[in-house]
Design a binder for these strands. Structure first.
Lengths: 221, 221
DNA sequence: ACAAAAGTGTTTTTTTTACACCCATGT
DNA sequence: ACATGGGTGTAAAAAAAACACTTTTGT
């Protein structure tokens, strides 16, 4: 009935890992060192094995690449053009995950890979269809990060309101009024003061906040 | 390096086809006639072949099942639990598409399959993990149908405002005020009168509308 | 004392909600 | 003439937007 030889495909998992750093949302990319596409960048990736879910594969990929085994990924999309990789048919399932700078600096291990964090509005040349793939994920970021439980993954604790505001300004690509932003966040009742101040920067110290526990389902928009 | 025997998986495409009929958003399901799960219902499905994209496979699946070869599907999600089907490892990529009653009655062909349209709030027993899969798609419908270019696929031409309102009430699971609904739609400038009236029903005839051309990017919410 | 960035309230505008009567058709 | 469902406007409430000065720190 079926041609079973024709029904098996290789599946790769491509991760988008986002982080917020110095007022920019950034994505983790790795540098490709071999031809073709030498010098181009790629999304962290791995082949899906028989006994694992896509989500598990995604987490394991990050362990392999940066030694961090606790990042949770959700499925974003699938790219299935038969010729998206010229030499063989590879179905790509893409995922999105978030990490914060503190976790990263504490837990990230040495890696043999050449990596860099790129602001999402200025991506480098990327291998194969990775630019298109990353474009889709970045486009979906707007919706995904409107959920506070996702934004929290970028800001786990002790963040300032101006920092959070900059993240939303990045996501929505528009500047927000400081007073209105604070008012809105406070009305939504999703953060609380830690009692500490963010000392050491120039200018008046900002209060530090953390997200409250029960913010599931609450969104910025 | 890699165990290549371990890197090939079977991929099935599972389609969610939605339609609006008699005030309800409905999904097309087929009845399974063999054990196990005899009498349970399943999403129209097919195996992804080497030379086709998921989107192409989705369209072809509907041609096979109901003889309609023009339905466009977009990828919704992927389900990859290794044991989601006990007998073999099958990765499911799911899609969502829409069809309107007029197209369906004009173009649908005879089918050997036993099918039925179920209101999305009362689904029958379904095979394997299809209930969970359909639940995810139905959950995402709210967001997807807030885009008028998607809602248009359910209402291609000559619909009445009360009909459109009922669709939104279904999607958002809340009743809307008739005057406020009309005002909002008109403010958004997405529909125009056809000049015809919907005669033959009881009560005052409703004006008939069609969506305007340039509604891309406009959303109800 | 000066520069830098954060904190704070009020007014205006816009958007959303609430609400009731008349109209056109079929029976 | 009656039943059925569609069409219409206005006022109140809520949400969003506009806007400028003061405070706290580092240098």
């Amino acid at each position: 009935m079926y041609d079973y030889e024709n029904t098996l495909v290789k599946v790769e998992v491509l991760n988008h890992l986002f982080m917020f750093d110095k007022g920019k949302i950034k994505i983790l990319l790795f540098k490709n060192e071999v031809d073709p596409y030498k010098g181009y960048w790629f999304l962290p990736k791995g082949i899906l094995l028989q006994e694992e879910t896509i989500e598990e594969a995604a987490t394991e990929i990050m362990e392999k690449y940066i030694g961090l085994d606790s990042i949770h990924f959700t499925i974003n999309h699938a790219f299935s053009a038969p010729n998206r990789i010229p030499t063989e048919r590879v179905l790509a399932v893409t995922t999105i995950g978030f990490v914060d700078g503190v976790t990263l600096s504490l837990k990230q291990e040495e890696t043999k890979y050449d990596y860099s964090w790129f602001p999402i509005e200025s991506l480098p040349k990327m291998v194969y269809d990775h630019s298109k793939i990353a474009g889709k994920a970045i486009q979906d970021l707007k919706r995904i990060l409107s959920s506070f439980s996702n934004m929290r993954q970028l800001f786990p604790s002790d963040f300032t309101l101006p920092e959070l505001q900059r993240a939303y300004e990045e996501v929505y690509q528009e500047t927000l009024d400081r007073r209105n932003f604070r008012k809105k966040i406070m009305t939504l009742d999703v953060i609380e003061e830690t009692g500490e101040n963010n000392m050491g920067e120039s200018g008046r110290p900002a209060k530090l906040y953390r997200f409250k526990e029960n913010i599931e389902g609450k969104t910025f928009l």
